[in-house]
Amino acid sequence: MILTRLAKLTNGWNPALRIALLVIGLVLAFGLPWTMYPPVALDITAWALFAVALDLLLGYTGMLSFGHAAFWGSSAYATGIIAIETGMPFPVAVLGGALVAALLALPIAMLSVRRSGIYFAMVTLAFAQLVFFIANQWRSVTGGENGLQGIPREFFGLDLSDSFYFYYAALPLILLGLLGAWRVVHSPFGRVMVAIRENQARARALGYPVDRYKVQVFVLSAFLAGIAGGVYAVGHGFASLQEVYWTTSGKVVVMNILGGMGTLWGPVLGAGIIVLLEDYLATAGIDAVGLVTGLIFVVTVLLFRRGIWGTVRHLVRSHAPKDDGNDEARQEEPEPKPAPARQG
Rank of each mutant, 00 (worst) to 15 (best):
S221E: 06
Q200M: 14
L179V: 15
R191L: 12
R202I: 11
L224V: 12
P172F: 03
A225C: 13
E198N: 00
W182A: 13
R197C: 12
I174R: 08
A205T: 02
L178G: 04
G207N: 11
A205H: 14
Q200K: 08
V185Y: 03
S187V: 07
A225N: 08
V215P: 14
H186S: 08
R202W: 02
R204Q: 14
K214W: 06
A195L: 01
V217M: 04
A205R: 03
V210F: 08
P172M: 06
R183L: 15
H186Q: 07
L206A: 10
F223D: 09
G180D: 01
A203R: 00
A203N: 09
V215G: 09
V185Q: 07
V217R: 02
F189H: 09
Y213A: 11
P209H: 01
L171E: 01
D211E: 14
R183W: 14
F223I: 06
M193V: 07
F218D: 09
L206N: 00
I196N: 01
F223L: 14
M193K: 06
V210T: 11
V215H: 12
V184E: 13
I174E: 02
R191S: 10
V185C: 11
L224N: 01
F223M: 07
R197A: 05
G180A: 15
L179Y: 11
Q200N: 12
A225M: 07
L173W: 01
P209N: 05
Y213E: 03
R183C: 12
A222M: 05
W182F: 15
G207L: 05
I174K: 05
N199Y: 12
R183G: 06
L173M: 14
A201C: 00
V194H: 05
A201H: 00
L224T: 01
V192Q: 11
A195N: 02
Y208E: 05
V217S: 08
G207D: 00
F218K: 09
S187H: 10
L175P: 11
A181E: 04
V219Y: 14
A222Q: 02
A201F: 04
G207K: 11
R212Q: 10
Y213N: 09
Y213Q: 03
V219P: 15
P172W: 07
H186P: 06
A205L: 10
G177K: 06
W182G: 07
V215K: 09
V185T: 11
V194A: 00
L224Y: 05
A203L: 01
A222L: 08
H186K: 15
R204L: 09
P188A: 06
L224W: 07
P188Q: 03
G180M: 12
E198T: 10
S187E: 02
R212T: 11
L176C: 04
L220H: 01
V219I: 13
G190D: 01
G190Y: 05
R191M: 07
G180E: 06
A225T: 09
N199H: 09
L171W: 10
V194Q: 04
L179S: 08
L179A: 15
K214H: 08
V210R: 03
G180Y: 00
M193H: 11
V185A: 04
P172C: 08
F218S: 13
L176R: 07
F189Q: 13
A222V: 04
F218Y: 15
L173C: 06
V185E: 04
V215R: 12
L179P: 03
Q216T: 15
F218N: 12
L206R: 00
A195D: 13
F218H: 12
